[in-house]
Design a protein around this nucleic acid. Structure first.
Length: 254
DNA sequence: AAACAAATCAACCGCAAACTT
DNA sequence: GAAGTTTGCGGTTGATTTGTT
């Protein structure tokens, strides 16, 4: 799918914004709203590409931006949320009012060393949990199916998931009689088998069925429960950070 | 005070999803 | 449904600031 370059004009300015440019942008957006970012620079009298204007506005000029150092609470939230969703900076930012994805991303990268040293001592538990979540970005980047965040696995293995499996199977039986007598209880290990995960030597029908069920569950969670909103997310039904205490990998950090 | 290194963060780039025609 | 356009995201870069020798 082709696309024209955003900043194809060589005369458009790049680099740091001047106070005058900031004022032009703020005045225009406050008067007219952001609307079409591609047209905005021309309308606002800015010699910038729309992409640059949008970035400047969302990361710096927006009136609700909270500047200054991260509070301990924000720090904790970032650690916990990252353990669950991985490098989904926009999702993390959505849970931290006034903070931008860029700011959080910079903060995270800036503190990488300290983080790693903590993790190195943290974590047999962390490995499993973080692996499930961090793979969401790596597999997605590799073009594979995006792995779900850890919260889905927890839901899947909770009473909610249990209930879902039962209802799904009863529905399947109605569609497909006689029932397969062996499908009653998928092995516990199979509850972690996700589509594409063929690590099990016995990649059998039961595991595949469990994986299919899990995918349906994910679809339901995304579409019907609306756990994920917007382009990539935001999860308004996401538990408050304190509720994630049991999955916190970093409590020793405080 | 000068030179260098490290840390920080604003901004850019390319990609892909979402949207429009 | 296909093609084209716009928007949003995550990764990365590079300029600036701060700290150290």
């Amino acid at each position: 799918m082709g696309r024209t370059p955003c900043c194809d004009s060589k005369v458009l300015k790049k680099g740091p914004w001047t106070p005058d440019e900031d004022k032009l942008l703020v005045d225009y957006v406050q008067a007219n709203g952001s609307g079409n970012w591609r047209l905005l620079p021309k309308l606002a009298g800015l010699n910038r590409c729309g992409k640059s204007c949008r970035l400047r506005w969302t990361n710096y000029l927006r009136p609700d931006i909270k500047r200054g150092p991260f509070t301990p609470e924000e720090h904790k939230s970032i650690l916990q949320l990252h353990a669950i969703v991985g490098n989904k900076w926009s999702m993390i930012a959505a849970q931290l009012p006034g903070r931008t994805d860029n700011e959080i991303k910079n903060y995270w990268n800036t503190n990488a060393e300290a983080r790693l040293s903590l993790l190195s001592g943290a974590t047999s538990v962390a490995t499993a949990s973080v692996a499930a979540s961090s793979s969401s970005s790596s597999t997605a980047a590799a073009g594979g199916a995006e792995a779900p965040p850890d919260i889905y696995l927890r839901l899947w293995n909770s009473e909610v998931g249990d209930s879902f499996r039962k209802s799904a199977r009863s529905a399947a039986r109605e569609d497909q009689e006689p029932a397969n007598a062996s499908d009653e209880a998928a092995p516990v290990s199979a509850t972690f088998a996700r589509p594409g995960d063929d690590s099990s030597a016995a990649s059998n029908v039961t595991a595949a069925a469990a994986a299919d069920e899990y995918q349906v569950f994910l679809d339901l969670a995304a579409e019907d429960f609306e756990l994920f909103h917007g382009r990539h997310g935001g999860f308004p039904l996401f538990p408050a950070v304190d509720m994630l205490g049991e999955t916190s990998l970093y409590t020793a950090f405080d």
